[in-house]
């Protein structure tokens, strides 16, 4: 049973992530008063990308993008997801924080070998942005860990069973809101798409990607959409023992985030960092102080 979880949870995460990507394009189209592509469009794109013959700039160009996706898939195994958490006793939330590094670092290494000025700018922005959102993110995770006095994600979920959701508890309400504010920054989508700004720096770190490289990067993006939201659901919405309920919770959070994403223009780098260090950080900090005071 345990062994099956190792296979089922990444596959389910992939399906959900791809579905969310398709859904987001569809909903965005409707907000723009367009018809929009079919829900399956991301899959069609992936089929095409995998069939293309593209260029490589060297071994690290390949290894980096593989590392990025491999780390993200491994990360799924640490996240409690509909009653499944294949690697629950292996380091908990602290390890999750760290394995989240694989994706940006892999892309950065790969892009670095790509040797394009656009990539350099993109990577630099990506890291600066991550420095920006890590402040509130670390504070949020610390608030949750301190409140439940554990570093295990499974224990956090367990402590919220039977509707004791953290989002609606007094100390963790503000950190929960802060998390919603930083979701777009963590995913690198509008209003925080400054790393991959297509109009400005030609999609940044992915400027030299085509074919299978782009496909792996897209899959990685699909996974990280799922992971970021699943982490929110686990930490603040009580997770779920049931895959269907878990998916519904993810869907609700995703659509709320999407409505923000659809109507906002892009921040400049400094504006983004200053925003992230101001509002979400202050909210998360307030939450942490309340947690400590109680």
């Amino acid at each position: 049973m345990k062994l099956a979880e190792f296979i089922i949870s990444p596959i389910l995460a992939f399906i959900i992530g791809i579905f969310l990507m398709g859904l987001s394009r569809r909903i965005m189209a409707r907000i723009h008063r367009r018809y929009g592509p079919p829900l399956m469009q991301p899959v069609i794109d992936l089929v095409k990308l995998f069939s293309q013959r593209t260029v490589s700039h060297g071994p690290i160009f390949d290894i980096g993008v593989i590392l990025s996706l491999a780390g993200t898939i491994a990360l799924i195994l640490f996240i409690p997801f509909g009653g499944m958490c294949p690697l629950e006793a292996s380091g908990g939330l602290l390890v999750i924080l760290y394995i989240m590094l694989f994706a940006p670092l892999g892309l950065a290494l790969s892009g670095g070998e790509g040797a394009n000025p656009n990539i350099s700018i993109g990577i630099s922005r990506k890291f600066i942005l991550s420095l920006g959102y890590e402040v509130p993110f670390i504070l949020i995770v610390l608030a949750v860990m301190t409140y439940y006095h554990t570093i295990s994600a499974v224990d956090v979920v367990k402590a919220q069973s039977s509707f004791h959701w953290a989002l609606f508890s007094l100390p963790l309400f503000l950190p929960g809101l802060a998390y919603i504010l930083i979701i777009p920054a963590m995913l690198g989508i509008r209003p925080f798409d400054l790393a991959s700004a297509p109009q400005e720096i030609s999609s940044g770190p992915m400027a030299e990607y085509g074919g299978k490289y782009l496909a792996l990067a897209e899959i990685e993006h699909a996974f990280s959409i799922f992971i970021t939201i699943a982490l929110f659901v686990d930490m603040f919405l009580g997770g779920s023992g049931n895959v269907v309920y878990f998916f519904l919770k993810v869907l609700v959070v995703f659509i709320i985030g999407l409505l923000i994403n659809a109507v906002f223009p892009r921040f400049r780098t400094e504006q983004a960092v200053k925003f992230l260090w101001k509002w979400p950080s202050v909210m998360a900090l307030a939450g942490l102080v309340i947690v400590l005071a109680i």
């Binding site: 490589s56 700039h57 299978k212 496909a215």
Partner: peptide
């Protein structure tokens, strides 16, 4: 997936 073509550093966008 199809093997990619190895290019030099100045073949760049």
């Amino acid at each position: 997936a199809p093997t990619s073509l190895r290019v030099e550093q100045d073949n760049n966008y």
